[in-house]
Nucleic acid binder design. Sequence first.
DNA 1: GTCTATAAATAGATAGAC
DNA 2: GTCTATCTATTTATAGAC
Lengths: 215, 215
Amino acid sequence: MNRRGPYRTGIESRAKIVGAAVDVFGRNGYKGGTLQQVAETVGLTAGAITKLFGSKEQLLIAVLQHWSFLTEGVIGAEARGRDRLEGFGRLMEFHMEHRGFLELYITMAAETAASPEHPAHDFMVERYTSTLSHLRDLLAEGVLEGSFRTMSQGEIDNEAECLLAAMDGLEIQFLLNPAFDLERSFRLYIQKLEARLAPVGADAAPATVGVPAVG
Amino acid sequence: MNRRGPYRTGIESRAKIVGAAVDVFGRNGYKGGTLQQVAETVGLTAGAITKLFGSKEQLLIAVLQHWSFLTEGVIGAEARGRDRLEGFGRLMEFHMEHRGFLELYITMAAETAASPEHPAHDFMVERYTSTLSHLRDLLAEGVLEGSFRTMSQGEIDNEAECLLAAMDGLEIQFLLNPAFDLERSFRLYIQKLEARLAPVGADAAPATVGVPAVG
DNA sequence: GTCTATAAATAGATAGAC
DNA sequence: GTCTATCTATTTATAGAC
């Protein structure tokens, strides 16, 4: 970085273009978003973007890689021990602070879910597969560690699916209603999850644990 | 219906066009879907559709009304008593059998969530608001009826939000992976919900209730 | 590296024939 | 009611000047 030479401005432009494309593709989708909208945002022309990235599709790929790199950094791989699921809480925070990335994620998820020929389809399928795998591992580690009660693999699978589903669904509700407290709702879900998965005899009064007064 | 007169074929065409538009808008989104794709599906021309519906946007409105009418019939208003949440289980079944309507719902939810100027934005916000309200009512009625333990309004709100989120998120997972058993995953979520919300003293062994062997 | 100009395709919508 | 033909606007992508 801070590289000298003939490519300096090109590299800076690429970064600015990718940032603008996150918003454009996030708001209007891949087909709906246009290179001219991106160009307008960064003060260039559509032709310049085509030459820099080769094609609209390759710009999308660059956008997805940027997003992937950023969110993996937010979630982190160090999530072990007590704060196992904390990385995903940080992801909710990140999405509240950077709405453009959340819009991109939800838009790409829906578009690729509905059309297998979407250029980002394989990317998103792989993303969902690995996220589910990650969540299953966290839950299984919690069982081995004694933080969670014993569960069958089927129970672990379903908890992982529901947890990912809750994140996606709550994020949609946040986008539709900016007053919605995404991070708080997600953390309440986690509290209920931890109460439900508490080792037998670890805590009394399971009927009310994990849900503080909120009304 | 089976109406005579000069409007007969027009009415039949309208129904066929709306059905085709469900798929086209569902798969490609509103901006991404074209009148020509719809016309091709039903064996008409794009010009004929424009004349019948006035504009692309009015076709979308007709599509949303059709979808709304159908899904409300599936969910039903009779959902009281023990089978309070059964209507939403039927909705999951319906979505597995009629994937086009599910694609339309998820696509519209994502598009309107990301762009407030979307022609279906107000429609979807209203849809989410009323669904959340419906779910809160079902939970509150369950409390009054004694099926559920006492909850604060905040707890009810969060349970309704998480339930709607789980439905949306699990549906996305089903679309991305057709082998995913949406209905079963949803019913497992409901079982966990009912176990979590069981009246105090109504059932022993809360740690394992509601989750049958699945591995 | 970015521009202008342009090619080639496609969009939604309208007009008029039948 | 549906078609053909056409208008106007946009799209991605390319070519060549600077």
